[in-house]
């Protein structure tokens, strides 16, 4: 069973799990800036054992889009 996406996002952005929803957007809060985005990408790649394309990293603009993009890598997050 793959780790819960909200759990991973919370850990990478150093936020409480209750603060994470699928609607949460990149750059909408100070905790999710471009530097934190790189930490999040590293966490996602490690947790789901994937290597993301640069285009997909740029396209991951919300928790919901991350979930959608991960499906391309056969990950049901």
């Amino acid at each position: 069973m793959a780790e819960d996406l909200h759990e991973i996002v919370a850990r990478a952005l150093m936020l409480d799990r209750s603060a994470i929803t699928d609607d949460l957007k990149y750059n909408s809060i100070p905790e999710w800036d471009s530097v934190a985005h790189m930490a999040l990408i590293a966490e996602l790649e490690a947790a789901y054992d994937v290597m993301l394309d640069t285009d997909d990293i740029v396209a991951m603009s919300s928790v919901g889009t991350i979930r959608e993009i991960l499906k391309k890598y056969d990950v049901e997050a």
Partner: peptide
């Protein structure tokens, strides 16, 4: 470096 950084950061 793009790929290395992500693997190293883990």
């Amino acid at each position: 470096s793009q790929y290395a950084a992500r693997l190293m950061a883990r």
